[in-house]
Nucleic acid binder design. Structure first.
Length: 262
DNA sequence: AATGGTCGCAACCGCCGCTCA
DNA sequence: GTGAGCGGCGGTTGCGACCAT
């Protein structure tokens, strides 16, 4: 069924606008919702004078116009939360978005597809595989945690995440359930182990198997990080220098993360 | 400067489940 | 019980911006 057909008229159907929204349309929709409230999207679409489907109006409002929508880059906290929650729930974007106030399911979905899956492709790892989860667990998440520690020390107001915690979801035990007390050893600033600097997926697998990154995330609770209750404990160094390796950027070009290195 | 490739994001599509007559 | 209408969700696509050559 198509909402377009609700009108039942091919003439009306042909009048329906598609594509990018104009300022006037945004304004019209915003004013209508301000006056009448959300919901009843098909009625709204017709009553407001917008030549859009109800679905289109709903999407535009929820993903763009709604006042509490947060724009801009995802914070490390938010990225970590996404990784964690995705490990629990999979592609339940709306459910994940519900844990990140101001962020939309569309935005999170885009983040996952354009950033996370890109990394998986570059590593030649199936992003649905346990191996990729391990890679996230042993490398990516510790880096995010590290960055969170840095940013939180710079600004107490960095945490913009919800205090409405949906903690300890037992629905699906996550592989990445994270630590009350984080003990991890991020990568090393100095290249002490140049012989190990080749960052192939095989080497990464070996690295993972050797547990060179001591990331005790078994008991990690991401909400505790969000609340700022947990600060970074010992940040000992013991790792291959992925970053300085010639190929590293090819595999891990999460720009924000690498800024830590500078 | 022109062109082709890549990336990121907004928007659309199709399916599913819920509600209600 | 059932079918239509609707809202919500996840997957996909289109396109503008940016970058490299």
């Amino acid at each position: 069924m198509s909402s377009v057909n609700l009108s039942g008229s091919s003439e009306e159907e042909s009048e329906l606008r598609r594509g990018p929204w104009t300022f006037e349309e945004d304004s019209l929709l915003t004013h209508y919702i301000t006056s009448h409230g959300e919901g009843r999207w098909n009625v709204l679409a017709k009553s407001s004078g917008l030549k859009r489907t109800g679905k289109s109006c709903r999407l535009r409002w929820l993903n763009y116009l709604k006042p509490d929508i947060k724009r801009g880059n995802l914070t490390p906290q938010e990225q970590l939360a996404i990784l964690e929650l995705h490990s629990k729930w999979g592609n339940r974007w709306s459910k994940i978005a519900a844990e990140l106030p101001g962020r939309t399911d569309n935005e999170i979905k885009n983040y996952w597809r354009t950033r996370v899956q890109k990394q998986a492709r570059q590593l030649k790892i199936d992003c649905n595989s346990k191996r990729f989860l391990e890679t996230l667990k042993h490398f990516w998440m510790p880096r995010l945690v590290e960055k969170m520690g840095q940013t939180s020390s710079q600004s107490q107001s960095s945490s913009s995440l919800s205090s409405t915690t949906n903690t300890q979801n037992s629905e699906t035990p996550g592989l990445l359930t994270v630590p009350q007390q984080v003990k991890y050893t991020p990568y090393q600033a100095t290249n002490e182990n140049p012989s190990s600097s080749h960052c192939s997926s095989d080497s990464m697998k070996k690295q993972s198997e050797k547990e060179c990154y001591h990331v005790d995330i078994d008991n990690f609770n991401v909400e505790d990080f969000m609340s700022g209750d947990i600060l970074m404990p010992d940040c000992q160094v013991e790792a291959i220098d992925w970053i300085n390796s010639e190929d590293a950027a090819t595999y891990w070009n999460m720009d924000e993360l690498w800024e830590l290195k500078k």
